[in-house]
Every structure is written in structure tokens, then in C-alpha cells.
Amino acid sequence: MKDSSLFCFLLIFTTLLTTHKEEAGREGLSLYTPPPLVLDYHDGPLMTSSTGIPVYLLWYGVFSKSEKQTVADFVRSISPMNEQQLGLTPSVSMWWKTLTSYKDNRGMQVTSVVSIAGQHTDRSGSLGRNLNLLDVETLVENSVANAYFPADAAAVYVVVTAYNVNVQGFCLSSCGLHSFLQPSAKTKGKQLVYAWVGNPGTQCPGYCAWPFAVDPSIGPQDFKPLIAPNGVGADGMVINLATLLAGTATNPFNTGYYQGVATLPNEAATACLGSFGTGSYPGQPGQLLTNTLTKASFNAYGIHHRQFLLPALWDPTTQTCKTLT
């Protein structure tokens, strides 16, 4: 990718299940306690703007009205004032509040305010249905160059690709990514932060929409998929977008909070991979709430009485993975 770094993540359940079996087999045989998970701070900027984080949504391809509303409602649910209007807990803004514990070298914390500043739909798919990662960057650049969105260095530009759009690495090595563009004429001379997430509803729900689907190709699993509150594809996009926004806010330029190598780091949410509720372990999401009517599983309320399932976040104050339920 041109002058940018790739962050990608994949729910690899074969690894998760194998790890759990190995740990179970070693019970009682060793007194070794692994060191705590720590995301080191690398002295770079975080997303700390006092005016908040504007999110620009670029819908690439065809989406249902429900899918768009679900994803947009998740983003709108992050800000605390929407939690006050909602009056239900645990909430999406409570989930994001953990990220405000991340501070930069000036003592500035990740902002608590996130809002949708604009949306644009490229329904016809201007670059075709088979995209590489440079095409994703081009879509972001074009959205600014064509004045769909302004050039905003404090914002996150999110490209969301439809169920029938193939993106390089999707379902094979990643469920999405976040990165940044260096200043150029197309970006109006500004360094822009962006993310991409795909719709996994039909392409790979077992990988990128777990625990609402399982992948039969990895063999028998002692796990029955949970019922998705908003649909497998929509909720898969929410889980992955939540993961990406958490990583973007705390590590926008490869120099924030992460563990491991900068090009493939453990970040705020990926450090807690596969954990959604208390008591989670590899292959099991943990204790969740259940909708009494639909039997759908969730752990956070959003605006319009939406119910979402959001990943656990690494809490820098306790150095543990924090869940809402």
C-alpha cells in the first residue's frame, strides 16, 4: 500500500479451539502464569480532538435499508448524550468509554464523541466488484477529490463493501482494516485516516460474523451459532467496524497503543479476540444478554432500542479485557 500501514484481523477459530484444548490439557501440570497482556504506548498521536471524531460512511455496492440503518445506528450510539436519551444499560457509549482511558504523551484522552458527518453510496460500484487494497485507498481519495466528503484530518473515512464485492484478503486474511493516507493533491494536502469493512453475510459468516455463524470447513465444533439481533451480515459488520474504530482511535498511525509488530498488531479490541462477555474462552463468547422475544444475543443497547454485540476491549487501567456483560 502506498505510504500506509495495514492493520488486519481474522477470527481464526481453529487456532482458538486448539489453544483452548491445549490449555485444558495442561491444567494442574504447571505453576507457570503467563505475563499480563500489555498494549505498549509508542508515543504517537491518538484521536483526542475535543470536537470529537467525525465518521464518513462510503457505501460501496448494494445494501438493504436495514443493513445501512444498523451500521449507522451503531456509530450514532457511541456518543454519551445518546446513552442519556436511551436510558438502557449496558450501552454502546459505555463500551466506548473504556477507550477514553487511553491517553497520549500530553495526557489527552481518546474523545468520547463520535458522530456521522456524512454518507455517500456508490451503488453501481465505480471500480468494479473485485477490489485490491489500493482500490480501497482510491475510493477514499475519490470521495474527497469528488467533494462527496470534505478533507478532514480529524475524521475516519469508512468504506463499507457489499455482500457481492470481493476485496483482496477478505475472508482469507482479514475481515477489514484501518490505515491512513499520506497527504496528496487528492486529499487536499491532509493525512487522512480510513477503515474498510466488508459484509460477511454470504461470503464468510463463520469467520467474520462469529458467533452468529460457524465455519463448517474447520470440522466439528461444540458451539451452536447465536441468533443475530439485526441479521448475520449487519451484525458481522458492526462487530468488525467496532473493532476497527477502537483500533483507529487508539492507534491511528502505527504509533499508538499496540502489542507486537506495527504492521500486524494486537490493538484495543483484537487483543481480546473472540471475547464478548464474562467467562469467555477460545471458542465460547461468554455470558450475554438475550432478547426474550427473538432469542437474539447481545451485550449493548443503542439508539432506537437497537441491540448490538460488541467485542471486549483491553482496559489500560486494569490491563485486562473488559466486557459489558
Rank of each mutant, 00 (worst) to 15 (best):
G125M: 08
E23W: 12
N240S: 10
S112A: 14
S112V: 01
K68Q: 13
V75H: 00
P285R: 03
N132K: 12
W196T: 09
H178A: 00
W210G: 01
P285G: 01
G118K: 03
P35N: 12
Y157K: 04
V238A: 05
Y281C: 04
K68V: 04
I227S: 08
F170R: 05
W96P: 02
P200H: 12
L46F: 09
A312N: 00
Y56Q: 01
L16K: 08
T318K: 09
G87F: 08
T250H: 07
A242I: 03
F149E: 04
A151P: 09
K21L: 15
N299T: 02
N230R: 13
L181M: 11
A117Y: 02
L226T: 11
S124R: 12
G274T: 08
P183L: 07
L88I: 05
G169V: 02
V110S: 06
L289N: 11
D3R: 15
L134K: 12
R129Q: 13
L181P: 04
A151G: 11
S50V: 09
T202N: 13
L310M: 06
L133A: 03
T70H: 00
A269G: 08
Y207W: 12
W59A: 00
A246P: 13
A262G: 00
Y207N: 14
L293R: 14
Y41C: 05
M94K: 12
M47G: 03
V238W: 03
T294E: 02
N130H: 12
T98R: 04
G201N: 10
D40I: 01
P285N: 00
S126L: 11
L29A: 13
P225Y: 09
V197T: 14
L245V: 00
I78W: 06
P200K: 12
